[in-house]
């Protein structure tokens, strides 16, 4: 598999930038991971599937959006720090310019009845979308029934007790990490 991969020193920064720019401009409707895989693994052959899955796992564990974390990790993997900057700039630029324009337009026309009505409809649809995304993420990620306890604790902390996301993240996060703590007493082995 590895011999079909491009050698990373042959990949130009401009190629990294334009590949991520294309993803940043075309990945409508979320699910950037699928677009990334199609470009990086299937089209450009810059990564193996295994490496892609590994980077995605790191992206999901760390704070930050999957799309930008993937850009940083893959960019760094291909061409070091400049590669990470090129990938990050590429994936962010189209959406950032678009949402900047949306901010300006919304400021001028957001209170027109027709616009408000459309946005109410869009927000109802967006709620359906995020709940569907949540369920799909859960199906993919949750392996044991016990995991639902941590899901529930986070929801209760935020939506019932209105705790800060920060406290819930650290509190429930620490509990969950402790729950999955290394089993044996091999302290200090292979740091």
């Amino acid at each position: 598999m590895n011999d079909t991969l491009k050698i990373s020193r042959d990949i130009k920064l401009s190629q990294i930038f334009s590949a991520f720019l294309l993803i940043g401009a075309t990945s409508f409707g979320g699910g950037v991971a699928a677009y990334l895989r199609a470009s990086l693994v299937a089209r450009h052959r810059w990564l193996t599937d295994a490496a892609f899955v590994n980077f995605l796992a790191i992206s999901q564990t760390l704070p930050g959006l999957n799309a930008t974390n993937m850009a940083v990790l893959v960019g760094d993997h291909l061409r070091g720090a400049p590669g990470a900057v090129a990938a990050m700039a590429g994936i962010c630029l189209p959406g950032a310019l678009l949402m900047f324009a949306v901010g300006m337009i919304y400021g001028h026309h957001g209170d027109q009845p027709a616009v408000t009505a459309m946005l109410h409809g869009a927000s109802a649809a967006a709620v359906g979308l995020i709940f569907a995304t949540g369920v799909q993420l859960g199906q993919k990620t949750l392996e044991r029934l016990g995991d639902l306890v941590f899901v529930a604790l986070a929801i209760i902390g935020i939506n019932v007790f209105h705790l800060s996301v920060l406290y819930v993240l650290f509190g429930v996060g620490a509990l969950a990490i402790w729950w999955y703590r290394p089993k044996t007493g091999r302290k200090g082995s292979s740091q």
Binding site: G134, L137, F150, A154, I158, V165, V168, G173, A176, W178
Partner: peptide, 12 residues
């Protein structure tokens, strides 16, 4: 450990 917490935060 963080995987289910992330789902919980997403749902919240």
């Amino acid at each position: 450990g963080l995987a289910p917490v992330a789902i919980g935060l997403f749902m919240a």
